[in-house]
Design a binder for these strands. Structure first.
Lengths: 140, 140
DNA sequence: TTTAATACTTGCATTTTGCAAGTGCATAAG
DNA sequence: CTTATGCACTTGCAAAATGCAAGTATTAAA
């Protein structure tokens, strides 16, 4: 189920991301892959926001369907799966950092690391490329 | 109802935007305010994605609650309301443009204007500031 | 052989959404 | 003054999505 492509509402680029990320959970999985180096089902389950397992299953499958995440069996433990970002998924980095900057500016209770906003504002390209080199998209 | 602040799931900056924009409709309203110069309830109703009126009402109220949109009576027609972006809302411009760029790169059927991606990649700051000067945040 | 770990699946109550129709108020037309 | 029209919602209800608890299947470890 859900493997078929849904009819899209329009060809607007903003709408396009909403078709994949227009819910409360999907982007948190991308965040965990991108910034917290999480890779397994149980690791995603442990996030502060407490996603439930049926929703996580469905969202991982959808991300895989959309070519944002890749699923492979773990080399050392064959009952475990390893999820990684594809390059299409990793391309979301600038979006994620702009979102982070916006929240850091407008939400006083956000836990963005100290100095992030200043560094991002003064050397955006540098911050992006240093994050980019750290994002793990290895498959193995 | 809904005027009270909901308990948030975490203090993560990514989660923070999801609390406001984590649905299929809210960001489309921001898009229409930002790029299509729409200002009234009926104008938002006319978008390609066909939002229904009860959802639109609820989302506009929520955006107002979150300080992203401001609602004023129209000067010429007092039965009409004018919605505008606040500066907090206008600060979403870099996010919106990054989202647009990502879709333009990864969705072949997106209707992003010709040349946008090249212009954005070669002169990001220039593109942002030319958009910024056009975004209407006037109240009157 | 039993136990544990991992990644789901299932069932069900609650919440959110989508759609159609209706309401109330303010100008506008006759 | 009475009726019509436009605008911004409300309401009602069926359908879908979500949250929670519990169960299942496979692999690995003791």
């Amino acid at each position: 189920m859900l493997r078929n492509s849904k009819a899209c509402r329009s060809n607007c680029p903003i709408n396009f991301v909403l078709e994949t990320f227009g819910d409360k959970w999907t982007l948190l999985i991308v965040r965990d892959l991108m910034f917290h180096n999480k890779r397994t089902f149980l690791e995603f389950m442990e996030s502060d926001e407490k996603i439930s397992s049926n929703i996580l299953t469905e969202r991982l499958r959808r991300l895989e369907d959309h070519g944002i995440v890749e699923k492979n069996t773990s080399p050392n433990n064959r009952s475990s799966f390893i999820y990684t970002l594809t390059s299409k998924g990793a391309d979301l980095l600038p979006v994620m950092l702009e979102v982070t900057a916006w929240s850091a500016k407008h939400d006083s209770s956000t836990n963005t690391p100290d100095g992030f906003l200043d560094a991002f504002n003064s050397d955006r390209d540098g911050v992006i490329s240093s994050f980019r080199s750290v994002i793990n998209t290895d498959r193995k």
